[in-house]
């Protein structure tokens, strides 16, 4: 090999190595949103409420953590259930949410989150019945909450009985025990926000707040609120 060829080889390898380091560093520093952001801005006609349908399951049944609890969202285009918790929503718009709650329940750590807060009309419906407060120490407790602290939104999701026909793997269908919770809220101006669950449902993790509670696409995610032209 000539001296020029050796130099070119070494330089090339150096550039590849440098590129890999830069790529790894940038991926580490700015990982983006795992699984991408599901777009709901074009799902409905402009000015009409956006329909967002989600389900909660006790065990996702697939992926890296099949035993973890998780949310799933219905893809507005295909109608399929997808494990994705980061959504793009239109600013200053009404979001109509339907939650299919398939998980069993437990008490809240802070009963403050037994209140329905920040939703249009001040109430949500549980299987068609309106409610604004629910004591998580009664009945089946709460499977989860759907909460957006920055919007002041909090809706408790009442659990199903653990002795019933509990769904064991996502996506669940209505043949399994479930509760349906409906509510609406309005998005504020454009910005990056987040939502989470306030039930410490990370079973097996410190104080129940690790694992799925601290991993995107399980019990919380990002909300990208954007202006829609």
């Amino acid at each position: 090999m000539t001296k020029a060829a050796r130099l070119a080889t070494v330089s090339g390898l150096f550039l590849v190595a440098a590129g890999l380091i830069v790529w790894a560093l940038s991926a580490w520093l700015a990982p983006g949103v795992p699984g991408g952001v599901m777009n709901f801005t074009h799902a409905q006609a402009r000015g009409r409420p956006v329909h967002l349908t989600v389900q909660t399951v006790g065990t996702i049944g697939f992926g890296k953590h099949p035993t973890w609890v998780s949310y799933l969202v219905r893809n507005p285009t295909t109608g399929k259930w997808v494990q994705n918790t980061s959504w793009e929503l239109p600013a200053y718009s009404v979001i109509d949410m339907t939650v299919y709650q398939y998980d069993t329940g437990s008490p809240l750590r802070n009963q403050k989150y037994g209140q329905v807060l920040g939703v249009i009309g001040g109430t949500a419906t549980l299987n068609g019945k309106s409610f604004s407060e629910y004591n998580s120490n009664t009945g089946n407790g709460f499977g989860h909450t759907f909460s957006i602290p920055q919007f002041g939104v909090n809706v408790p999701l009442v659990g199903v009985s653990s002795t019933g026909n509990v769904c064991g793997s996502a996506p669940c269908t209505t043949q399994y025990a479930h509760n349906i919770v409906n509510f609406s809220f309005k998005t504020p101006g454009p910005g990056s926000y987040y939502w989470q669950c306030f039930v410490p449902c990370g079973v097996g993790y410190f104080l129940g707040n690790g694992g799925p509670m601290s991993t995107q696409n399980y019990m919380g995610g990002e909300l990208e609120v954007v202006n829609v032209s």
């Binding site: 410490p200 449902c201 990370g202 104080l207 129940g208």
Partner: peptide, 11 residues
Amino acid sequence: PDANGAAGGYY
């Protein structure tokens, strides 16, 4: 902060 959570008492 108690050990409650899904199904309770696992933590």
